[in-house]
Design a protein around this nucleic acid. Structure first.
Lengths: 151, 151
DNA sequence: ATGTTTGCAAATAGTTTGCATCCAG
DNA sequence: CTGGATGCAAACTATTTGCAAACAT
């Protein structure tokens, strides 16, 4: 429950920006504050709409770019797969995904232990469940190598 | 390992089409065959490129629409979240997602049992893992209700 | 002062829709 | 024949890029 913004949050944010060499701008603070009070999984558009009330001059691009920056900083995350082109999954057997967050590749894997995961009663009450899958995200070896060689 | 197309596959496909009242067209067969030999998680664009060699007259739209139709039929699936606008995940605690495939809402949930899932050695060898999450897909209650009232 | 960030506009990419024509049943 | 399917084009939507002006440090 992180609905009240505390001074601590802001200090932490400022330090984090500094550690990444980023400037503290009013826009970034506004976006960060909006992020703190957001529930759900807002799109850049949604954040933009909410911020516009109090900061009428902010541009959508700034919001979008800033959110991307925050994701780089690890302050927030991008919901798996969203924002990419639609991909189809041909494999109809029970399987799981590892996704490289750098190159976007998705690899299937099989792992007995994930196949009969129990589903919380609470979920069954609120959803008619069709599918359950484990999604692992990381950086694949070849992306790892290429980022080393780029430095 | 489904790399060789067998007559069975095609018969099964034809029956499935019939059961959905869909016509068997050369395009649908070509797309289905391409799907069968696809590994990875192709985009409509990728399928289109591969098919174009043997079916130069096929249009991208047909490929895209047909893949969507196949997904409706349950023949293939859409990779979770792909094709949607980018969404941000504000919640940095370990949590999991239930997604309604109808309205696109994503709801966080917490479930102790999912929090320390073992990761296969094979994955650790090939990826530097950042995140693991369980994603459940289904239809939420309010979508369920609205689809009943629409009939 | 100076290099980053912002806001705007334009470019690009991905997806959807409308419609005339075509073809499977 | 006839209704569903296709191909094309245009409309939309989402995302990215380039750049001049503004601002934080």
């Amino acid at each position: 429950m992180k609905k009240s913004i505390e001074k601590n949050d802001l200090d932490e944010f400022i330090n984090k920006c500094k550690s990444f060499g980023l400037k503290i701008t009013p826009q970034r603070i506004a976006i960060y504050q909006e992020v703190l009070v957001s529930s759900n999984h807002p799109s850049a558009e949604a954040i933009y709409r909410n911020i516009k009330d109090t900061h009428p001059n902010i541009s959508f691009d700034t919001v979008n770019r800033t959110l991307l920056t925050f994701a780089d900083m690890g302050l927030i995350q991008i919901v798996e797969g969203s924002g990419d082109a639609r991909r189809f999954d041909i494999n109809t057997e029970q399987h799981h995904h590892v996704r490289c967050t750098k190159c976007g590749s998705i690899t299937d894997f099989y792992w007995e232990k994930y196949n009969n995961l129990e589903i919380p009663e609470e979920i069954h009450e609120k959803f008619s469940v069709n599918k359950i899958r484990v999604v692992i995200e990381g950086i694949c070896n070849s992306c790892q190598l290429s980022s080393i060689s780029n430095e």
